[in-house]
């Protein structure tokens, strides 16, 4: 369903940001954006906590199970089969809350993680290349004109103190 997909996306982007680079702004902002879009605040909370605690190895280990389960369409059957995988993923402290709330999302998440990660990385690289090259080109375009403009702008922005001090003298005319 669409809800599940969006949750998965949110989880993916967070995980991506964790693995690819902690501070990658794009991943985080995307995650935030998607979390905002979710009306299911609780589900979002679960995915974030999961991605926070499970490492990449764990995610990979549970891949087989998740792939199996992803083939199933019914939610009820999923819930039982994923019980084991979820316990692996989630820390004991978070067990309670996770059990109560929908656990079916976890499996789909982990299954798609790798593919989505790769896609994201490729996309990023392309993006970087394009911005760098275009930026460099723009920067090199007629430098002398830009320098002249910057100089004039600077001249106009800084007040001419000499004029302010001496130019406005009116009363000091000598007798």
């Amino acid at each position: 369903s669409s809800e599940e997909d969006s949750v998965v996306e949110g989880g993916r982007s967070i995980l991506e940001s964790k693995t690819v680079g902690e501070g990658s702004k794009e991943g985080l902002s995307a995650a935030n954006h998607q979390n905002d879009n979710l009306n299911l605040g609780k589900k979002a909370a679960i995915t974030t906590s999961d991605s926070g605690h499970c490492t990449a190895e764990e995610a990979l280990a549970s891949e087989d199970e998740s792939e199996e389960s992803s083939s199933f369409s019914s939610d009820d059957e999923d819930a039982e089969s994923t019980e084991i995988g979820r316990e692996k993923l989630v820390k004991p402290s978070h067990m309670g809350s996770v059990q109560e709330l929908g656990s079916e999302n976890l499996i789909d998440e982990t299954s798609d993680i790798e593919d989505l990660l790769k896609e994201e990385e490729e996309y990023k690289e392309e993006n970087n290349c394009s911005t760098e090259t275009s930026g460099a080109l723009k920067w090199k375009e007629d430098l002398s004109r830009k320098a002249a403009e910057a100089f004039l702008r600077q001249q106009q922005a800084t007040p001419n103190l000499r004029k302010l001090v001496y130019g406005t003298v009116t009363e000091n005319s000598e007798e």
Binding site: L164, V165, Y166, V169, N172, E174
Partner: peptide
């Protein structure tokens, strides 16, 4: 000081 500068000039 600004006024002083004007006075220094005159």
């Amino acid at each position: 000081t600004i006024e002083f500068l004007r006075h220094l000039k005159s």
